[in-house]
Design a protein around this nucleic acid. Structure first.
Lengths: 364, 364
DNA sequence: CGTAGACATGTCTACGTAGACAGAGCCTGG
DNA sequence: CCAGGCTCTGTCTACGTAGACATGTCTACG
């Protein structure tokens, strides 16, 4: 591997000048720049990132801690972070950790610090109930404040609580007496936020909050919860903490002969791409993954590059509830066995290429 | 930030000994090791990865090129790669590139080389029809041979063609006269493999291969293709190149009054977690993401660490077709408007927690 | 008792870059 | 006409680690 010294020799300049060219520093004449680039091309030279990091003390890298498996939410966030990081000239290191792993988030963060990163993103943090994790670089958490001791902790929320409120309010507005909630694992802050939003709306409207159903984000857990609910006759509205669980729930209800939305309404959370295409099309709260990733990374990069500047205010993304066919007003108890209309029904996806019609709910 | 020199001074040893301790090298007495670790702890010392990389010439990092958005397949592969990399002591750098991006895969690879990686994984490569990409580290491609000039190119397939054959054969075995194919973008090798498997089976059995429908992996494109197919009366079996498109297709068929599987059977590809919970539960070809990631990374690490050793033979994962409720024998044309049974039907998911029943098909 | 060899630790240096600083040429304004 | 500032390029060095090699100690065995 040729070094900048080799390039310098061939171009007849100093090593420092080569460095200047490759860092786009000012004060290099066009003539010299060309000679250097020619020489580099000829030798197949590339900047050595290790040396660069060592000499400059900066890694130009952001570390990302992701959680769990290939869920749509975390995966979308990761892609959004990647795009935003690349746009700002940062590379990405990724460490995944599963729930209940001994090392956990703390281990992942430590690992990133050893690998060398200028900042850390914790995507969808969970509460591991341990002592604070010591970190010496700025940290961005998407979704919730984490338990860590960092020089600078930034948090950008997806507005989960507002979204959960909107979802719950939508069901109450349709006339349902109350709304059941199928929650995600409560160690995830994301799951807690949704639960909190749901509970807050019920309290505000003086409705009794039914016992919370516990899910694990999977469609299987939604299915299990659905079977439990179906065995009770009084459930007419459910808000599930993500779309997968909502779809599992719809399936279980359907198998039990309870039609959605005629007999029971179900609202999901995320707006996964499939949500518009399952039967019935799923009413769901859309998470602004891209906006969150973009805004969050902007904050993080600013904290890295201007440690003393005041962080700009966080702009909460708009709350977007996508109303499709899985919700409807409660209907008087009907006899079973009635003909099921499969094809389009009011509220279903139109025949035009399905665009999701957003309904902006007011916040708070 | 303290350096190994500081630790050495405090522990009363040489810098080299500190290095030995932190690299778990042999020939360090327990007593000295303890003193060093104590001193390091006290100073809050961490290995400096940049210096380490510079001095050793190794980055202990693997670069991953991913494609497109948060699709289930690529996301699953990425998680699998992360797990396998961590298990072998490698860190991960990730670069994403979208189809039709000017820089493309070549740009992503270049970026990784500059960042510094010991090996590269190209997850689900696409054909960009350019000249070979020069790479000076081993490269692993998951799914197809890429167009690159590397010292060592390894490929681990997901057995896409075999899976596509099994899916197509399943439909023919049920008695369908022929099978339509909803393909993915043909620049993706993964899409080509599936198309090839489908076409091969039809040819072998002397069936006419209908015109291929073009999709883009999205449920929306499956929906659009489904509307087109529904307008023709003769289609009884469709093999879609992924589950999202299959689900979009089922939706379109249902809206047009064509019941699945009674009027038309649909097979997907991937076995996404939702596949068992949509209505009807989707028959699909399961991709062995984890096995592929694990085996691929093993090969890659071996190529990195023992460049001269012969690569071990690639073990093709077993072909697994998961038969659920979206496929059935063709039925005599029935009158429309008949009562739809929503609850369990033969082939549907049982009431027990849905376990997917695999059917091993013989390869080739 | 001498020596081979395992064990334990140290010394010196290369790795390739960017930062601090210096100096030379040139232009401009008073 | 000259001071001051801008432009361009160079020299020297720090960054923190691991590799090559040297050295010293201790054990075992003929």
């Amino acid at each position: 591997m040729p070094s900048s010294v080799d390039v310098a020799r061939l171009a007849g300049v100093s090593q420092k000048t080569v460095s200047r060219v490759f860092n786009d520093e000012p004060y290099v004449s066009a003539e010299v720049r060309r000679r250097v680039l020619d020489a580099a091309e000829q030798l197949g030279y590339r900047l050595n990132n290790a040396a660069r990091m060592l000499a400059s003390g900066r890694t130009r890298t952001i570390g990302v801690v992701t959680l769990g498996t290939a869920l749509y939410g975390p995966a979308s966030l990761l892609m959004g972070i990647e795009r935003a990081a690349r746009a700002t000239g940062y590379a990405l290191r990724v460490v995944n950790t599963m729930e209940h792993e001994p090392e956990g988030v703390a281990g992942a963060v430590r690992s990133l610090l050893v690998q060398g990163v200028d900042g850390i993103v914790i995507s969808e943090p969970i509460d591991e109930g341990e002592e604070p994790i010591p970190v010496d670089v700025p940290v961005l958490t998407l979704g919730a404040p984490p338990n860590l001791a960092a020089p600078r902790v930034l948090t950008v929320g997806v507005g989960a609580e507002s979204l959960a409120r909107a979802a719950t309010a939508h069901l109450l507005d349709l006339g349902h007496a109350t709304v059941h909630h199928l929650a995600g694992p409560q160690r995830w802050y994301a799951a807690r936020d949704r639960l909190a939003g749901w509970r807050a709306v019920l309290r505000e409207r003086g409705r009794e909050a039914p016992r919370v159903l516990a899910g694990d984000w999977s469609a299987a857990s939604g299915y299990a919860a659905g079977r439990e609910l179906a065995s009770r006759g009084d459930v007419t509205a459910v808000f599930a903490a993500n779309d997968d669980m909502a779809i599992g729930m719809v399936r279980a209800l359907a198998e039990a002969g309870r039609r959605v939305p005629e007999d029971a309404s179900v609202v999901g959370f995320d707006d996964i791409p499939l949500a518009a295409y399952v039967t019935p099309p799923l009413t769901t709260a859309r998470q602004p993954f891209d906006a969150v990733a973009l805004q969050g990374l902007e904050l993080l990069v600013r904290a890295i590059e201007k440690p003393d500047a005041e962080p700009p205010p966080v702009v909460e993304p708009p709350v977007e509830l996508v109303v499709r066919g899985s919700t409807a007003p409660p209907q008087p108890r009907s006899r079973r066995g009635q003909v099921r209309r499969v094809a389009s029904r009011a509220g279903g996806e139109p025949h035009a290429p399905p665009t999701s019609k957003g309904e902006s709910a007011t916040r708070n």
